[in-house]
Simulated scan of single mutants.
Amino acid sequence: MAFRGPKVWLWRWRRNPLKRRADAVESWVLLAAWVLTVLCGVLAGLATARTVEQGMARERVEWRPVVALLSEQAPGTADPRSGTSSTSEYVWAQVRWSARDGSPHTGQARVRPGSGVGTPVTVWTDPQGRLVTRPATPSEARTRATLVGGLAGLCAASVPFVAGRALRSRLECNRIDNWGYEWARFGPLWGGRTTG
């Protein structure tokens, strides 16, 4: 087991007559890798979160609820006593609606089982009249933006982190090779020179 002395802060940048050029290079590589890791992670995370939140805010402004009518009988049966479906799940059925410009559209929407032809259903559409999901509320948008931004930040931060680790590993291999070379060169000179 190797002896480890007390931990000294910033030891990589202190003056030391035994410190080689490779040690100095390694210290700056580590510093640059950590700074780039933090910067890339934070900047990518914030930019992604802002973009996601702005996109969802735009959806809340542009997407509109439209009343569509069932164009076919919905599968399943409804409970006639309560007016609700016999199961709590919705089913897919064909609906039709008119876009803002008056053009007719059809598509699949989730409806209560057993709903009849002509039953009104609220669907959400984009400016072109295509079916979309209900837009996220501001709090849902913040949560999604935070999660996506955090994931993007971690992915972006991993690039300089892994590159720094790979470069440090390469420097370590070079340092060990140099030690071997120096030992092979000077080790034999020490043999038989002990006094006793």
Rank of each mutant, 00 (worst) to 15 (best):
G55Q: 13
G55P: 00
G55N: 14
M56Q: 14
M56Y: 07
A57P: 02
A57M: 05
R58P: 01
R58W: 04
E59C: 01
E59V: 02
R60V: 09
R60F: 05
R60H: 05
R60T: 07
E62Y: 03
E62V: 10
E62G: 04
E62P: 00
W63T: 03
W63G: 00
R64H: 11
R64Q: 15
P65M: 05
P65V: 11
P65D: 08
P65R: 04
V66L: 07
V66A: 08
V66W: 01
V66N: 02
V66I: 12
V67I: 14
V67A: 14
V67D: 12
V67E: 15
L69T: 12
L69C: 03
L69I: 05
L69P: 00
L69R: 15
L69N: 10
L69G: 02
L69Y: 13
L70P: 03
L70E: 11
L70Q: 09
L70I: 09
L70Y: 08
L70M: 09
S71H: 03
E72S: 12
E72L: 10
E72P: 05
E72R: 14
Q73A: 15
Q73R: 14
Q73F: 06
Q73S: 09
A74R: 04
A74V: 03
A74W: 06
P75A: 15
G76K: 08
G76S: 09
A78G: 10
A78V: 13
D79Y: 03
D79S: 01
P80C: 11
P80M: 09
R81C: 06
R81E: 15
S82M: 05
G83L: 12
G83D: 11
G83Y: 08
S85N: 13
S85K: 01
S85Y: 00
S86N: 08
S86I: 06
S86M: 06
S86L: 11
T87E: 12
T87W: 01
S88D: 11
E89H: 05
E89K: 06
Y90W: 02
Y90S: 13
Y90K: 13
V91H: 06
W92D: 15
A93C: 06
Q94A: 14
Q94S: 12
V95G: 04
V95R: 03
W97Y: 09
W97K: 02
W97I: 09
S98N: 07
S98K: 12
S98P: 00
A99W: 03
A99V: 04
A99D: 14
R100Q: 12
R100S: 14
R100C: 01
R100V: 06
D101V: 05
D101I: 05
D101L: 08
G102F: 02
G102N: 06
G102D: 08
S103W: 00
S103K: 11
S103E: 13
P104T: 12
P104N: 07
P104D: 13
P104W: 01
H105D: 09
H105W: 10
T106S: 14
T106D: 12
G107W: 02
Q108R: 15
Q108C: 00
Q108G: 01
R110L: 11
R110M: 12
R110V: 02
V111F: 00
V111D: 04
V111L: 04
V111R: 01
V111W: 00
